[in-house]
Amino acid sequence: MTPTREDVIDFVYAEARMLDEGRFADWLALWLPEGHYWMPLDYKQSDPETVTSLLYEDNFMLRLRVERLEGERTFSQKPKSRCHHVLNRPFVDEFDPGANRYVTTTSMHYVETRLDEQQLLAVTARHELKVIDGTIRIANKRVDLLNCDAAFGNIQLLP
């Protein structure tokens, strides 16, 4: 199957909806096994490995993160956080069925809340997507926070 640009854009919206609705098992299933979720610490950071990031998680770490959210003794999630993404229409920066490579850039406002606290983050998400067995999957995702160099309290869910 060759996706249309519309399919690629719909995918980015659908992914955000899964996170907002807490359907984390569905969300994990979107990922290719070798993918990394990267949230840089530095503005325009180019090295995810020898310089600290906020997140640079492989499939095992993402599974652990999601599994933990449901745990009996996950004290920082009693009560649970909720999140909310507001998306601009994604830009399709690369659309290359020949190379099976689709890249989007999406501006978002991400809201996370727990108890009486609510925080707003301005986010730019870059998705690298591939089509495997007829479905679109995430090869890599990079999430840049506009204020990545600010001091944060807990950010517990996934922008």
Partner: peptide
């Protein structure tokens, strides 16, 4: 240094699943 950076983001970040419970 890559291992140190990994430790830092896994344990000491505001996005760390370990740090979350400490701060709590």
């Amino acid at each position: 240094t890559a291992r140190s950076a990994m430790y830092n983001r896994m344990i000491n970040a505001p996005t760390s699943i370990v740090g979350h419970d400490d701060l709590e």
